[in-house]
C-alpha cells in the first residue's frame, strides 16, 4: 500500500516524561523534573530518525519512555494513526510489541548465565510464541544469520564474544519480534570505529529490509549525517530544531545546532573557536522562554521575555528561535 509509506508508524504529540524529586517511601514528591517536556515526533517506516543532543538533555529518557521503561507523564501517542491507550494496565506490554530498544552497553543488557540460544528464544516466549522447538530454533538461527553470526554461536555465552559481536546479538534478539519501531540508544559509542562502522551498515540494511523505523539516539553528528534521513536536536527536554538531515546539517537555523556542528572534531580542518561555554544548566529554571538563552552567543533582549513558538519552513525544517541564523 503506497499510502502507508508516508504515514508515520509512531507519532508523539506533546509528550512529557517527568521524574519525581525528593520522593521517599512515605514522602510524596516535592516537585517534578521535566526531562522530556512537550516533544512532538514522527517516525516513518524504513527511515532512520536521529535524536541528538548533549548528555542530560533527555534524549535517552525519551527513548526509554517509548518502551515503557520510564513511566510517561503526559501527551499522546499514535501508532499508525490510531491513538494508543496509555492508561490501560498492560499498556507497556502492548507498546513493546511495536517498539523495541537496543542499549549502549551490550554487556549489561545480556544475561551472562544464558546461552545465545536462550537469549534469543526468551523474547519470543515472552511475546507468546507458540510452536515446536524445531521452529523456534529455526527462527533463532535465522535471526543470527541476518546479523552476520552463525549457528556455532548458539551454545556459547555472552562473555565469549567481542563488543561488536555482542551488539549484533542484541540486534538479533529484537529482530524476531518484528518490531515496527526500534529505539537505538548510543549503540555504537562504546565500540571501536572500525567495528561501529560494521554495526551501522548492518542497521542500515536491516532498516530497508524489514521496513523498520529507527529512532537513533546519539551525540555523534557525523554518524547522523551518514545514516539518518530525519533529525531532531534536543536541548533540556525540548526539541529545538528538527527536519530532513541534509537541510538541518547544511543550513541549521538554531544557534545550538550550529554550535554542535562546530564542536565536531573533523579531519582535514583546522582548529575552530570554542563553540559554547559552560554545560547544560540545572533544571530549576524551566519555563516557556528559550532554554538555551544563557549559553547562546546570539542572545538578545527578546529571548529573556517572549515565549517561543515553533517556526516551520517550506523545507519541512522546524525550529524554536526568535533570531534564527540566516
Amino acid at each position: 500500500m503506497p499510502s502507508t509509506d508516508f504515514d508515520p508508524v509512531l507519532s508523539l504529540r506533546n509528550w512529557r516524561v517527568c521524574y519525581p524529586l525528593g520522593k521517599g517511601l512515605w514522602k510524596k514528591a516535592r516537585s517534578f523534573l521535566p526531562a522530556v517536556d512537550g516533544v512532538d515526533l514522527d517516525l516513518y517506516p524504513g527511515r532512520i530518525h536521529a535524536l541528538v543532543g548533549e548528555s542530560g538533555c533527555g534524549k535517552s529518557t525519551l527513548g526509554s519512555s517509548l518502551v515503557g521503561l520510564t513511566p510517561w507523564s503526559g501527551g499522546d501517542l499514535f501508532i499508525q494513526g490510531k491513538a494508543f491507550d496509555l492508561t490501560s494496565k498492560n499498556a507497556p506490554d502492548l507498546l513493546r510489541q511495536t517498539v523495541q530498544m537496543i542499549f549502549q552497553d551490550s554487556w549489561s543488557s545480556l544475561n551472562p548465565r544464558q546461552t545465545v540460544f536462550e537469549l534469543l528464544a526468551e523474547p519470543l516466549a515472552v511475546h507468546g510464541f507458540k510452536g515446536q522447538n524445531g521452529a523456534l530454533k529455526e527462527l533463532v538461527v535465522q535471526a543470527l544469520e541476518s546479523v552476520g553470526l552463525d549457528s556455532s554461536a548458539l551454545n556459547r555465552f555472552p562473555h565469549a564474544f567481542s563488543g561488536g559481536q555482542r551488539q549484533r546479538i542484541c540486534i538479533a534478539r529484537v529482530l524476531n519480534l518484528k518490531p515496527r519501531v526500534l529505539v537505538c540508544d548510543e549503540i555504537v559509542s562504546a565500540l571501536d570505529i572500525s567495528v561501529g562502522a560494521q554495526i551501522l551498515e548492518l542497521l542500515r540494511s536491516l532498516t530497508s529490509q524489514h521496513q523498520m523505523s529507527i529512532l537513533f539516539i546519539t551525540h555523534d553528528l557525523a554518524t547522523v549525517e551518514n545514516l539518518a534521513s530525519e533529525i531532531s536536536v534536543a536541548y533540556m527536554g525540548k526539541i529545538v530544531e528538527s527536519g530532513p538531515v541534509e537541510k538541518v546539517m547544511s543550513k541549521p537555523c538554531h544557534p545550538y545546532t550550529q554550535a554542535l556542528l562546530n564542536a565536531m572534531p573533523r579531519m582535514g580542518s583546522q582548529i575552530r573557536p570554542i563553540p559554547l561555554s559552560g554545560e547544560i544548566p540545572t533544571w530549576e529554571e524551566c519555563d516557556d522562554l528559550c532554554r538555551f538563552r544563557k549559553r547562546c552567543p546570539q542572545v538578545q533582549n527578546n529571548c529573556h521575555q517572549v515565549a517561543l513558538a515553533c517556526t516551520s519552513l517550506e523545507s519541512k525544517q522546524n525550529f524554536y528561535c526568535h533570531f534564527p541564523l540566516s
Binding site: 570505529i193 572500525s194 562502522a197 551501522l200 551498515e201 553528528l221 549525517e225 551518514n226 546539517m249 579531519m267
Partner: peptide, 20 residues
C-alpha cells in the same frame, strides 16, 4: 581506519574493517 569514520557532508557507505 579512515574509511570507518562517518563524515559530515559526505554521504557514502562506511566500510569498516572486517574482523577484530
Amino acid at each position: 581506519l579512515i574509511s570507518s569514520i562517518p563524515r559530515l557532508f559526505q554521504k557514502k557507505v562506511i566500510q569498516g574493517i572486517p574482523g577484530r
